[in-house]
């Protein structure tokens, strides 16, 4: 494992911790898209079924369990927690996320490394992860004002993707048989979706002002 991959995993983990901290400390999930969180839970459940079939390392297995458990916990809090669910911006979070799921499933049935159950689910999870942030970005755009922790959450999620791209570039040059164009193309799409957010995040950081997205 190279340093870029490790930093990618760590920024991913930090983003989830920030989100859990926000929900736990403020007892509020305002500004957070339940649809994006449901998509991430689905992404992890579909991809990490290989927990039962392939063993890579203790690190990989532990991280997989952490990602599945934390994403389910977040969805549970936003849907069922007595106090937290009251702050959910339901009327702003109207993205038709089922269409994303259907489109990604169709694509995974057409394009995958091998037509087996686990490989189709794996490709599906990669495609779905690439677009899962869309409901969140739309919600932020609609609400305009982005609170500090929500801004940090999305920033670290974007950083995770950027580090994974560096990781693939590194692996491409250091490994003889490294070819995984499904991950790489999807990863590039996913990172590109953050470009706009990063731009405004940088502006607010430079001006030391509150993060605001244009309507």
């Amino acid at each position: 494992m190279n340093i870029f991959r490790f930093l990618g995993d760590m920024t991913h983990l930090i983003s989830i911790l920030i989100l859990l901290l926000k929900i736990y400390a403020t007892k509020s999930c305002s500004g957070i898209s339940l649809k994006t969180q449901e998509l991430y839970a689905l992404v992890f459940l579909a991809r990490y079924l290989d927990l039962f079939t392939d063993f890579i390392s203790v690190y990989n297995s532990v991280m997989k369990v952490v990602f599945i458990a934390s994403s389910l916990a977040i969805v549970w809090c936003m849907r069922r927690h007595r106090v937290v669910r009251r702050s959910y911006d339901k009327e702003l979070d109207t993205f038709r996320h089922y269409f994303l799921v259907a489109a990604c499933l169709a694509l995974a049935l057409l394009v995958q490394e091998k037509f087996t159950f686990l490989e189709v689910l794996w490709a599906f999870s990669i495609y779905l992860e690439a677009v899962a942030i869309l409901p969140q970005l739309v919600l932020l755009q609609r609400s305009g004002n982005v609170d500090n922790l929500t801004g940090q959450y999305v920033f670290f999620l974007g950083a995770y993707r950027a580090f994974y791209i560096l990781n693939w570039i590194y692996r491409y040059f250091t490994e003889t048989h490294f070819s995984r164009w499904i991950s790489c193309v999807s990863g590039l799409v996913q990172t590109a979706l953050y470009a706009d957010f990063f731009y405004y995040y940088f502006i607010s950081w430079k001006n030391n002002s509150k993060l605001q997205l244009p309507a």
């Binding site: 490394e113 091998k114 490294f178």
Partner: peptide, 10 residues
């Protein structure tokens, strides 16, 4: 080296 179908990333 990484064989097709072995996914070692998260």
């Amino acid at each position: 080296s990484t064989a097709v179908g072995v996914h070692d990333e998260l």
